[in-house]
Amino acid sequence: MFRKLHEPEGAITVYVDGIAASAEPGESIAAVLLRAAPHWSRTTPVTQSKRAPYCMMGVCFECLAIVDGIASVQTCLTLVRDGMRIERQHGKRSLSA
C-alpha cells in the first residue's frame, strides 16, 4: 500500500504475525503495517470489520495491534524495535491470548 523512498538506514527486523519485515529505527509500527500485506491492523470488536492506520497521530485508534504480547497498542505512537513481535488484533480483545 505504501513504499519507502529510500533504503532503510541500519535496517532492523520486526515480525508481523510471524513474518519478518524490514523496518527503520525511528519509524512507527503503523508505518510498517502499511507496507506489510495484508494492509490492516485489527478487526473491530463490533462487526469484525478490518481497519488500518487512518490518522497516524494518535486520535483514531484504528491502528491498535498486539505488540510483544500487549494488546490494544497504538502502533502509530509506538516506535519499532529490533525483534519486535507485532500481531494483528482480532475483534474483542482476548485476555487468554
Binding site: M1, F2, K4, C55, C76
Partner: peptide
C-alpha cells in the same frame, strides 16, 4: 483500509519517508 487522511500520509512521509 486504504482510506487515510492527508495528514496521515504526510506524517508517513515525514517520519518514515514513505
Amino acid at each position: 483500509p486504504g482510506v487515510l487522511t492527508v495528514g496521515a500520509a504526510q506524517i508517513l512521509l515525514k517520519s518514515s519517508g514513505q
